[in-house]
């Protein structure tokens, strides 16, 4: 079963360590603009959302690529770029609905999440567990439990409130 990055933005503390480890892992440098993951912040409200490639089933980048440089990796299920074929036209960047395709202006190439070949460092370093690498089938199950937990919590509070009236 293919795995995906499951992002829970409510857990993100906004520290951007994921951006740092991503750029060091892939480019050997600290430089968030060369990271495959990006924390989008509403600093004045304390809201932080990690944004990365969703490895879409019907990936627009794959469809739009004029030289068919983007394909799905059979094993990991990731959407990947063949740099021998890529011409750097940036059509994929224009069409990606998440802004997850980026252009590295120093290396002059398109960059995107590659799951670090199966051991994503952003996941490994995120102790807040805002990013997890899980089976695609697990994503909804995990979210169901979290939602159910909230729901029963509210129910318990209501019950307790009624009991004390």
């Amino acid at each position: 079963m293919a795995k995906v990055l499951m992002i829970d933005y409510e857990k993100c503390t906004g520290c951007r360590l994921c951006e740092l480890v991503c750029s060091v892992k892939h480019e050997g440098v600290s430089n968030p603009t060369r990271s495959r993951i990006k924390i989008v912040k509403w600093e004045m409200e304390g809201r932080y959302v990690p944004m990365s490639c969703q490895q879409c089933e019907s990936a627009p980048c794959m469809v739009v690529c004029p030289v068919k440089a983007i394909s799905r990796d059979g094993g990991m299920g990731r959407v990947e770029i063949d740099y021998d074929v890529c011409i750097g036209c940036r059509m994929c960047i224009a069409i990606c609905p998440f802004g997850a395709m980026a252009f590295d202006t120093l290396a002059k190439k398109v960059i995107k999440c590659d799951f670090c070949d199966g051991d994503p460092l952003c996941v490994k370093f995120c102790e807040a567990e805002a990013i997890q690498y899980v089976d695609a089938s697990m994503v909804s199950a995990v979210k169901q439990v979290a939602a159910a937990e909230k729901f029963t919590g509210i129910m318990q509070k209501v019950a307790a409130a009624i009991a004390t009236v």
Binding site: K25, G28, V29, N31, R34, L121
Partner: peptide, 20 residues
């Protein structure tokens, strides 16, 4: 948007994880 080159990236990643 300028690089800060890490002298020994693989070791730095491993050791940072340990320190964290």
């Amino acid at each position: 948007t300028m690089d800060i080159k890490i002298a020994h990236p693989a070791e730095a990643l491993d050791y940072d994880k340990k320190v964290i």
